[in-house]
Write a protein that binds this DNA or RNA. Structure first.
Lengths: 196, 196
DNA sequence: TTCATCTTGAACTAACCAGTCCATGATGCG
DNA sequence: CGCATCATGGACTGGTTAGTTCAAGATGAA
């Protein structure tokens, strides 16, 4: 059983990612990760790093995967800002609706845990949050909001996106989550309409 | 050092509450609680119960304390619904701004942790969330929103309130948090105005 | 076939976890 | 004063944690 990699790195990282996502950093042990990935304990340390390193790799993997989808959703912001923001929220709502994925959002859970994360991991989580804010701000500016409006809506949309994670972890239904974003989308429509 | 209670129950519960609030359920050990309360390990078990029991007591204590403040803030909802919701958010914003208190919100953190909490504690957390929704719904209905609008804004305001916890745990500034609620308040003003 | 390489599984350390138990000793009552 | 009560501190159990180490053995190249 050796001499050559016995496992697929992407599959293993996805398994670890799902485990961290489902249970959070504190409630995921290295043994849990070993069982989830099918990798032996020593293989995890030699191939994926220690718990902090692996968590950061999973966080990056998650942020890149869904960051790309958020980017795609916001791509039409210059022409159709309202459609873009709706699509942005749809990325989250569809992810939450997928029964194969855990509830919530790894980034939001990490943000909530920042006060108890190690400094390196916490800094990484903050950076990830900052990127999403910048993405939203750029899209809203391109969509025609002035700087002040764009700042306010960027932080608001990011916040509401996090709130979907909290609510879904608590078992809130898809219909109720749609109502949460509906208010925000209506407010944005109002802001865009009033400005145009 | 015996024969009579050597500690004040309220002080001890507050110390435990702060510890759970700061570090969350998973990252708070009974030794942490012992240090925070100044009570010996066995005194905690005999006087405050096991970790789950004590956590539920702290959650109730928190929910009652701030639930009363939210109620007070929403008291004027029938006459001034917009002022009431603003005051509702101010309860949260002022709590977050208090340097003597941990960041975030014990209820929101518990909601996020529901998938990894024991069933009894998770049920208690869900119940607490439900009460806040009912409070908001009643206030918004009294304020003049129809049932559909009241449902949507109740879940939205509750969600945004949770998002403030996430953001503050990640170090978001008070000004940015005010921007988050500003969009919601403006949306409510619009809904109230359009209806009136 | 022979040998060096590298994954693997299991054992191991030291620290921490929740929860229990009990001797100590201070207290208040009679 | 004498005694029963009860909070206290500390020791203890059994289990889990993160991280390390190492012999066994499968592989691929020569």
């Amino acid at each position: 059983m050796a001499g050559k990699k016995q496992f697929d790195m992407d599959t293993a990282l996805d398994a670890a990612l799902i485990r961290f996502w489902r249970s959070g950093y504190a409630d995921t042990s290295v043994d849990d990760l070993s069982r989830a990935t099918g990798l032996n304990r020593s293989s995890i340390y030699s191939s994926l790093g220690d718990k902090d390193t692996l968590f950061v790799r999973c966080l990056d993997r998650y942020a890149t995967r869904y960051g790309d989808r958020y980017d795609a959703a916001l791509a039409c912001a210059a022409d159709e800002p309202l459609t873009a923001v709706r699509a942005f929220f749809d990325v989250t709502l569809e992810r939450i609706a997928d029964p194969a994925l855990p509830d919530g959002c790894l980034v939001a859970q990490s943000a909530m845990a920042i006060p108890v994360l190690s400094p390196g991991v916490a800094a990484h989580a903050k950076e990830t949050l900052g990127l999403q804010r910048l993405r939203l701000r750029a899209a809203l500016t391109a969509g025609g909001l002035n700087d002040q409006q764009a700042d306010a809506f960027a932080v608001h949309v990011a916040a509401v996106n996090h709130s979907l994670a909290v609510m879904s972890r608590a078992g809130t239904s898809a219909a109720e989550l749609r109502a949460v974003v509906g208010v925000t989308v209506d407010a944005l429509a109002q802001a865009l309409g009033a400005h145009a």
